[in-house]
Design a protein around this nucleic acid. Structure first.
Lengths: 240, 240
DNA sequence: CAATCCATATTCATCGGATCAATTGGAGTC
DNA sequence: GACTCCAATTGATCCGATGAATATGGATTG
């Protein structure tokens, strides 16, 4: 095994062993390099790898620190995975998100505090106000959409679950979905699904919440699969 | 933004834009550094970060290559997240795994080919043979357990789903679970759950498969939560 | 001609040192 | 006591050199 990989594992092990705790400052580069018996440049490459994993964080002129190591932070690096596969794999990511978000929304139905339900209602109203304007600001809609889902899933009682969901649809994909909604009716339908989830949460009904959440993500999935000419409100009658 | 982060983003963008394709070789360090207008050491730190993300891969004496970028590979880095939180967060990771594995097993019930069902049966029999011996080899049981679950979830028809599940219980956690099974009855119960899942797959029954898979992971969760004195077969009668 | 072996070139890995830039903390000032 | 300013600290970036692993192409061998 190379010197750098050894250094990475050594530092990781120091964290697992509790020798380095979250928020703690590491020795200065020169000192730590000497301690590990490697050159400063080599240590820096090891540190750079751990930065990419969100395990370490550096501040120029100050020092290198261990991050909070929270699951949400460590899993955050996944979001770029979804972005790289924006073309082919978007459907698969959304499928996972559908499974998890349905469950998380059900869990949140009996856990989210009343005051956060009020905030949720506020987000909904703001989104509906935005959608009613002649020139729709898709950027703001994306942000509100993200806040809406994040607020719900953050109250599922499982930080790992919330973090995985948050990263299952990368920012690029999410933005693309909303940008693709040139049809005002598609925007309205999406907001309607949001409201349905919101009402289920208000009713503290996990089953309703689960179904509406699944339906919402499924709608997004299907709007992606049927690349063009989605059915929507003007669907032809199905053969019976 | 720092020079290194800029370089990381530039290379990532080259991949997203298709300028760099999976398996392709990057220019040699000196050349790429000149092209980006940075020093070689600086480029190496950027490359090191992308290696940590499983986006790039270097071979000494040969060159630097773009990996396959498959979701399974890119999501692989998650497993270490589960390992860092082996004590506190294990329950939360297992909860996510339960949600996903139940669904994946249901999906696999109608997708896994007959010949792989045969392999699955073989894995089961081998595990049962191992468990019957006086001195149980926990290492082999862990490996068989991993193969059993991986073979099923790999046939759910969604590579992302399979990859996330695979990484939701880190190797450390999985090994610890089996090592904790000092009680032979616990091993028998676990293998019994595996057999129940296997029979549901044989019957091509998604609902049965889903329930048995969820039950299996839930059993593991509960055996962790109730750190000592788990109920099991000698449970006291419940109050009615 | 095909296969093998080997010298050499190529390329990443590692090292040591130097300079730049940002932050911090204390000296000095009002 | 609050503010300013400077010097020490520390990471960021650059440069050049050497070591180690691999690939390549030519020579050798059957």
């Amino acid at each position: 095994m190379g010197v750098i990989e050894t250094a990475i594992d050594t530092i990781k092990q120091m964290i697992v062993d509790g020798e380095l705790r979250p928020g703690q400052k590491l020795p200065i580069e020169k000192e730590l390099a000497d301690q590990l018996g490697i050159a400063r440049n080599t240590l820096r490459e090891a540190v750079r790898a751990l930065i990419a994993m969100r395990v370490l964080q550096t501040r120029q002129g100050d020092g290198t620190y261990v991050t909070s190591l929270s699951p949400a932070l460590l899993l955050d690096g996944m979001s770029f995975v979804a972005d790289i596969h924006q073309h082919a794999g978007a459907g698969e990511f959304l499928h996972v998100r559908r499974i998890l978000e349905a469950e998380a929304t059900a869990l949140a139905a009996v856990r989210i505090p009343d005051e956060h339900l009020v905030v949720l209602g506020g987000l909904l109203e703001e989104a509906e106000r935005l959608a009613a304007e002649p020139e729709i600001d898709h950027g703001k809609l994306v942000a509100l959409d993200q806040d809406f889902h994040a607020l719900i899933t953050s109250h599922c009682g499982n930080a790992v679950l919330a973090a995985v969901i948050a990263n299952m649809s990368g920012r690029t994909v999410r933005a693309r979905i909303w940008r693709g909604m040139t049809d005002p009716q598609a925007v309205q339908r999406t907001l309607g699904e949001h409201r349905a989830v919101y009402l289920a949460l208000l009713a503290r009904d996990p089953d309703r919440a689960r179904i509406h959440a699944a339906m919402h993500v499924l709608g997004v999935e299907e709007s992606l699969t049927q690349a063009s000419g989605r059915l929507g409100t003007t669907a032809p009658p199905l053969p019976s």
